[in-house]
Design a binder for these strands. Sequence first.
DNA 1: CGGACCGTTGAAGAACTTCAACTCGGGTGG
DNA 2: CCACCCGAGTTGAAGTTCTTCAACGGTCCG
Lengths: 247, 247
Amino acid sequence: MQTALQPRDITFKQLRQACSNCSLRELCLPNELNAEEMKQVDELIGQGKPIKRGEALYRAGEPFRALYAVRVGFFKTSVVSEDGREQVTGFHMSGELMGMDAISADHYTCDAVALEDSEVCELPFEEMESLSRKIPALQHHFYRVMSREIVRDHGVMLLLGNMKAEERIAAFLLNLSQRFQIRGYSSMSFHLRMTREEIGSYLGLKLETVSRTLSKFQDQGLIKVQNRLIELRDVDGLKQLVNSCQG
Amino acid sequence: MQTALQPRDITFKQLRQACSNCSLRELCLPNELNAEEMKQVDELIGQGKPIKRGEALYRAGEPFRALYAVRVGFFKTSVVSEDGREQVTGFHMSGELMGMDAISADHYTCDAVALEDSEVCELPFEEMESLSRKIPALQHHFYRVMSREIVRDHGVMLLLGNMKAEERIAAFLLNLSQRFQIRGYSSMSFHLRMTREEIGSYLGLKLETVSRTLSKFQDQGLIKVQNRLIELRDVDGLKQLVNSCQG
DNA sequence: CGGACCGTTGAAGAACTTCAACTCGGGTGG
DNA sequence: CCACCCGAGTTGAAGTTCTTCAACGGTCCG
């Protein structure tokens, strides 16, 4: 494993860029840091580690050393049950943190796989933890980020437990749209980085159901689908769908 | 709200008992604390606040001030969607922490309702946060507890996304059994604190399906059901169920 | 003792899955 | 450069699982 990392480390250093200059700073780090604090954080964080499409950033069972922030690209995280069923637990885009599940058991419990060529920043957890004792805003930030993950998971539980296929897909598309918008990309038209099967796994549906539902939405004029390119045509219609049918 | 709390506060103080004497200490707090650290924690934590069956400890939207540890009793937490659908996000027994969802948005996002007469300990979050900067073990403990909640949620997502009704119910019963065992209660026979509907909400099933499945398990000799009293008769059989059917 | 709530069970219906056939597009090797 | 092939996606038809609707029994509590 160590040897495999060496060629990467070269690129790693070439791409090095301080958090203080990073446009994603508001997403990853608390915004109340002063220059001195920022510098301390900068010194800990390893930046721009590239992960090729299809590669795993980490896998379930590997020892925990760091959290990872997506710098560019797109990831899925998934858990696998004892009998081999995969459940996608999340899709992660720039500025989002991965690996928080690993703190409790000291090893990762998910696989994190890049769905396109990506780069991540490495946050060595022990060091961050100890730095967060000196910088209250940083400590609070980590509590908040973990809390946000819990809230997000509850939202997925609501979706999986109560919603019908059409509502799930509509909610999924709206969620992606919103997250692209926050990052300055178009919220009305975007490229899906994942397969129908991965969407299905995340939403508790089979890939055929995902495909059928997207086709149905297109027939209804809600969206336009061209392979993985999605264009939202009637956002209000989609929103109504999410809050309409009784589950 | 303040007035309603006053009669409680009397009992609150009557029941006061230090964490250092509490048998649940290993569940709530890190076990590496020395006497001095323990004392500091003790001084912050409000103990033995009683919540009657059916009452809410907190509700979604209320401002966040404290985490709560179940001392005695049993709680459910649930989120409600915009159109009024309830999703039970968890059942919580003694030693377990509730309210971590509230850190990110500074208000609770769930309702927490007692399913039997209960008592909770109050952990004022801001004070705990600042104390945790002085006690590394305490800080690490909170990170771990939140991480554990994330892992648990991923497990529920796997259950809701991939499992059939029988597998969900079997997994649910085995999970309860294990948690009772940890607390020194019988793992083979226990009382369900929640209705069939609440089980169904948690597992993404209708109450009739829950009822039918329990009856079926009884017919198969896996369990014995008497209202809310459950007796496990074939734990291995249940375990096989969880890891058998392909979802 | 009456009523509300909880739970059980049957039968019919809806929603999703499964199985299967086919299309499309991109990459590879002849 | 083109043929081929593979993975991804679409669509139809049949099948399964769960839900819905409805009726009824039990139990707890005022």
